[in-house]
Design a protein around this nucleic acid. Structure first.
Length: 932
RNA sequence: GGGCCGAUAGCGCAGUGGUUAGCGCACCCGCCUGAUAAGCGGGAGGUCGGUGGUUCAAGUCCACCUCGGCCCA
């Protein structure tokens, strides 16, 4: 019973001779201070401060200390700039996953990481210092590099936190930390122990500007204009096979490699012939290319000799056009007749395929360039020249000796340094390698133990593993982890010794890797350490550093193992799909090399972020969008909603239009929460036993919400957030806002506060609020907690929504018969609404309450009962519905003749039954009797 | 140039080989003024990237092409 002093009295005004009462104070209208507008850019920082003050992340760890762990291992972004939309997408996805598993009851620690070594930071540091790498002490440079990395770690940490990413930001993993470097060296020691590491001469991508070897990942392909040349090599000895005076014709786009030529490669199966020309004499070329070449060079053909398959020409000796040494014809499957002449100029010092072919024929590796790309002293013709400048000199010389048949400019894709954007060269140098061959099978095997999502990821990774060459681990720079090798000054052996590496790892994990450049060998070598080959103690340190992919790849060992809140292998890694060859690959390689096992159970990938028209975002195109601008304009929850609503397994688009649209969706969700909160003002049923549901609409909506949460659970488990969002929006707009919530306003507002139907409905509203609030919490991290603060809850409820678990289902025993009926009623409702719309259009009625509807129901449908009539009338908000049976489902509406109740606004036949309230319907009269 | 992925309404997404291809938002036209910088109803909007094929039947299967993306050369 409502206490008397709480009862609002109806106020009356005398208007003409009738008493018009204002019944508004007798209604239970929604009341809440939950703001309609989110004002997210201003409010989100307040939440962040609150979470920090509460120690939310730590509170989660304590609350979940005894729950099963879920570990998403963070791929470290490079600490070299502000975050961009791709980084935001990545981190937000990770956060939503972590929060989902937290909601699902797991202990989910998240240790974010940073990749800090490598060329980009070293270049930035050099630029800041205004010096070149030769003008500065390595340790000073390293200190500057570390400062750069620390700066960006600080910046990015703030940005990530602003996005609502929850994690152990106080204790991230950082690849330049001494402990991490030590762990990486342990990984390397394991590789050494297994005999996977070797030193060899190999052509590697080399950047003459940065003076370092580059990994494949550090190469970019850009358009480049080359001077392509056709060069004739005189045949010296063909054992009478070829006509006298024949010259073998090669084509190359890199004239500067002619000084290193030692052979000409032919495909064993391609047919070759000698073409006698008026202009150039006898030329050996591929049959298939003869026509093309004749046109290009303007030959007049006299006759041809041959043809011979390439294998019959093996061993023919030609002469280098100006160096004069023997150049044999060799065979190689890499030769094609698609371009050039079908004869490939072979310089093992300057090309991988050339190197392989040359190795089979035991050819010498001529490599006349120094680290700066300058020909070393003693190189005929070009000594002292930069390699690019040699092109002109070589071409002039070939012209001079009559070997140049044609020069033509060629626009093509050529390898460039990712950092300095200059063209790179292939150059044979001494490098440290990890053998992929020796672990390839195990790598492939390990891919089968991993769940790949999307599924094609497994094939892609296996293809990657299949084609991967040995891993060049060394870099000739200073900003990185030193390769812990020594060279014996007596016997020139390169010393690599696993126990010694572990010893050094121990030192570096304590004191940091700068020490390697500050201290001599004696600091790192145990006392009495001798060269294992010759016993000499005269050892000097290696000064190359590791490829950064070994750094980040070692994270599986450095971060996961031994961490109190983590475990090895990780349950999940999630990065962009460019990481199959990057981090996923280096993680797998280091783990398999050291432990014979994949370091993750599952690999999930997302696509790239594109602009509104599906184009790559690029600073130079001016189509980039800064996530921090989005946060400032719309708020992080909107950015998160964008991530959640996108099908991220493919590439995703972002634009103002998309964000504005999401802003609308957000408002719809927010207002629905607001309406629920408003109607639940004063509700004290949180945590109490739920009532039995008798009302068909209530039973239907609880069932509908349950279905949705069930689907959402499946979607969340499959990381299909867009399905969660789209089904949520459907629930909110279609089921809740336009049907259920609109319909129940009448009972909420007009019934007596304690009316059983009204009370039952409030429990339902609370359930809807509770389920929705928890289920959107992983996505709308700020808004959900804001809702939570306003939501009715038990006294001992946790301080944040982010400490709650997945809601229990309110099982109401909704039957298929009920569902059939509701589905039918909803179908009727649509027809009735259309009929009402027709009479609204011709101004017969204003709102639905004024309409009385005649509904024709098909004979095939079940009979339309009295209860159906009441339900459908309520659901359509019409004054009345009269049904009869007919052929097809149709409805006709007209204006009701009944009077309007001034309190509930319904048109009913019983308005004015009671004299003291002539303007009220019977129901409202009775309600007032109870209330007053 | 090669491998892989993608293309459904302006936007975000659904669509087992089987009615006239759907949902939400935006848009247009109304209603309401007791969710109010809200809420409700209705409407319009598509050569399912293109071309060919398989099939009684193709958005869906196949081939080729175009465009875009990732990776490799």
């Amino acid at each position: 019973m409502v206490p008397r002093h709480d009862v609002p009295y109806a106020r009356g005004v005398i208007l003409f001779r009738r008493v018009i009462m204002d019944y508004r104070p007798t209604l239970q209208l929604p009341k809440t201070s939950f703001p309609m507008k989110g004002n997210l850019p201003a409010k989100e920082p307040e939440w962040l401060a609150a979470w920090a003050a509460q120690g939310l992340y730590q509170a989660q760890r304590e609350q979940r200390a005894h729950d099963e762990k879920f570990v998403l291992h963070d791929g470290p972004p490079y600490a070299n700039g502000d975050i961009h939309t791709g980084t935001a997408l990545n981190k937000i996805l990770k956060d939503m996953i972590n929060r989902y598993w937290t909601l699902a009851g797991y202990d989910v620690a998240y240790v974010p990481g940073w990749d800090t070594h490598g060329l980009p930071i070293e270049m930035r540091a050099l630029k800041q210092l205004g010096v070149s790498q030769h003008q500065i002490d390595p340790v000073a440079l390293r200190k500057e590099c570390a400062a750069v990395a620390r700066h960006y770690i600080g910046l990015m940490t703030q940005e990530f936190q602003r996005l609502g990413i929850l994690g152990d930001w106080e204790h991230p993993y950082i690849t330049m930390s001494p402990e991490y470097e030590g762990a990486e060296l342990e990984v390397f020691a394991a590789m050494v122990e297994k005999g996977l590491i070797y030193r060899d001469l190999k052509p590697v991508y080399w950047c003459p500007h940065c003076e370092t070897a580059l990994a494949e990942g550090e190469i970019e392909y850009h358009n480049h204009r080359s001077r392509a040349i056709y060069v004739a090599f005189p045949v010296k000895d063909s054992g009478d096979l070829l006509p006298a005076g024949t010259r073998a014709v090669i084509w190359t786009t890199t004239p500067w490699t002619i000084p290193a030529n030692v052979a000409i490669a032919l495909n064993p199966d391609i047919l070759y012939q000698v073409v006698e020309t008026k202009e150039f004499g006898f030329l050996l070329v591929a049959v298939d290319l003869t026509e093309t070449l004749a046109q290009k060079m303007g030959w007049t053909m006299v006759r041809t000799y041959g043809p011979w398959p390439g294998r019959e020409l093996e061993g023919v000796i030609t002469t280098h056009p100006y160096l004069g040494h023997d150049v044999p014809l060799i065979l190689g499957d890499h030769v094609t007749s698609e371009s050039g002449t079908g004869l490939v100029h072979t310089a093992p010092g300057h090309g991988m395929e050339d190197f392989e072919a040359g190795r089979q024929y035991h050819l010498s590796v001529v490599q006349p360039l120094n680290d700066q790309g300058i020909y070393v002293d003693g190189t005929p013709l070009v000594a002292g020249l930069f390699y690019q400048d040699a092109n002109a000199v070589v071409i002039d010389k070939l012209q001079e000796v009559g070997a140049l048949l044609l020069e033509e400019p060629l626009e093509h894709q050529y390898a460039h340094c990712w950092r300095c954007k200059n063209p790179v060269i292939f150059r044979a140098t001494q490098q440290w390698f990890m053998s992929i061959d020796r672990v390839r099978e195990k790598l492939t095997e390990a891919t089968y133990s991993v769940k790949w999502d999307p599924e094609w990821g497994g094939d892609r990774m296996r293809q990657m593993v299949e084609n991967r060459q040995d891993w060049c681990l060394s870099r000739q720079r200073v900003w990185g982890v030193p390769i812990p090798a020594f060279y014996c000054q007596s016997c020139h052996t390169a010393v690599l010794d696993a126990p010694l590496i572990r010893h050094i790892a121990g030192i570096i994990s304590q004191e940091g890797a700068d020490l390697w450049w500050q201290q001599g060998p004696e600091h790192f070598l145990p006392e009495d350490y001798k060269c294992p080959e010759c016993g000499s103690r005269d050892l000097v340190q290696e000064h190359d550093i590791f490829d950064v992919w070994l750094d980040s790849g070692s994270s599986q060992a450095a971060v996961l193992a031994g961490h109190r809140h983590l475990k090895w292998p990780a349950d999940l890694v999630l990065e962009g799909n460019d990481q199959y060859r990057g981090w996923f690959n280096s993680l797998l390689t280091t783990a398999v090399a050291a432990k014979d096992q994949a370091p993750y159970h599952m690999v999930l990938t997302h696509g790239m972020v594109l602009d509104k028209s599906g184009q790559e975002m690029h600073k130079s195109l001016g189509n980039t969008i800064d996530p921090m601008d989005i946060v400032a304009q719309y708020g992080a929850d909107i950015l998160r909603l964008w991530v959640a609503s996108s099908d991220y397994r493919n590439d995703v688009r972002i634009s103002d239009e998309i964000l504005r649209q999401l802003g609308e969706s957000y408002r719809k969700i927010r207002n629905t929460f607001r309406f629920l909160l408003g109607n639940l003002a004063g509700f004290d049923g949180a945590g109490k036993a739920r009532p039995h549901l008798a009302d068909p609409l209530n039973r239907w909506i609880v069932h509908t919400v349950n279905s949705w949460s069930g689907e959402a659970r499946v979607s969340y488990e499959g990381y299909a957030f867009h399905q969660v969002v789209h089904s949520l929006l459907h629930l909110v707009t279609t089921d809740l806002s336009s049907v259920y919530l609109d319909v129940i306003k009448d009972r909420l507002y007009t019934l007596a506060p304690n009316d059983p139907l009204r009370q039952e409905t409030l429990y339902v509203l609370h359930y809807i609020l509770d389920v929705m609030m928890r289920l959107v919490a992983p996505i709308l991290v700020f808004t959900s907690d804001e809702v939570y603060q306003y939501a009715p809850k038990e006294a001992d409820a946790p301080m944040s929504v982010h400490l709650l678990r997945w809601p229990d289902v309110w099982a109401v025993g909704y039957t298929p018969e009920e569902d059939e009926r509701m589905t039918r009623m909803l179908r009727y409702r649509e027809v009735v609404l259309k009929a009402l719309e027709r009479v609204r259009a011709d101004k017969t009625i204003g709102n639905a309450l004024e309409g009385v509807v005649t509904l024709t129901i098909p004979v095939s449908d079940p009979p339309f009962t009295k209860e159906d009539r009441a339900l459908l009338t309520e659901m359509t908000m019409a004054a009345d519905i009269v049904a009869h049976v007919g052929e097809t489902l149709e409805a006709h509406a007209e204006r009701t003749t009944w009077q309007r109740c001034e309190r509930c606004w319904r048109y009913t036949p019983d308005v004015g039954t009671h004299e003291e309230y002539p303007d009220l319907c019977e129901r409202c009269h009775d309600v007032l009797q109870v209330m007053l």
